[in-house]
């Protein structure tokens, strides 16, 4: 009985010890990964610095980029207007549908066609 308990305690201690070793290993792996990432980042940065002559040659202002920006803004604005128009159209159609249904529910005094025509006007 005592030997069995001792064995169990030893096993538990071993588990705890293994758990601790595992945790240490995980921390070490995380640290190594972090260091590796830093090294890689540093290497990539050094590679970028090697491209300095090319970048220095590119640092001239190109005024046509300003035109590209304005073109982008114009297309964004027109896309926004188009979206708004489509949204209005969809809302109009759904309103028309709802009005048509209302009209039908109200009876024959106001026909569905008249209800559908209302939002469009």
């Amino acid at each position: 009985m005592t030997a069995e308990r001792k064995d169990q305690e030893e096993l538990r201690d071993m588990e705890v010890e293994l758990e601790l070793i595992l945790q240490d290993a995980e921390v070490t792996v995380a640290k190594i990964r972090e260091e590796l990432a830093q090294h890689r980042q540093l290497r990539r940065q050094r590679e970028q610095i090697e491209r300095l002559p090319e970048y220095l040659a590119q640092t001239e202002v190109r005024w046509r980029d300003m035109r590209v920006l304005l073109d982008e803004v114009r297309s964004e604005l027109s896309a926004g207007e188009q979206d708004a128009a489509e949204a209005n159209g969809a809302a109009g159609a759904s309103d028309a549908g709802a009005s048509g249904a209302d009209g039908a529910a109200e009876g024959s005094a106001e026909g569905p066609d008249e209800g559908a025509a209302r939002p469009a006007s």
Partner: peptide
């Protein structure tokens, strides 16, 4: 303004 204009080269 210069570097602001240079950054517009990346607009795409």
């Amino acid at each position: 303004m210069t570097n602001t204009l240079v950054s517009l080269g990346m607009i795409r």
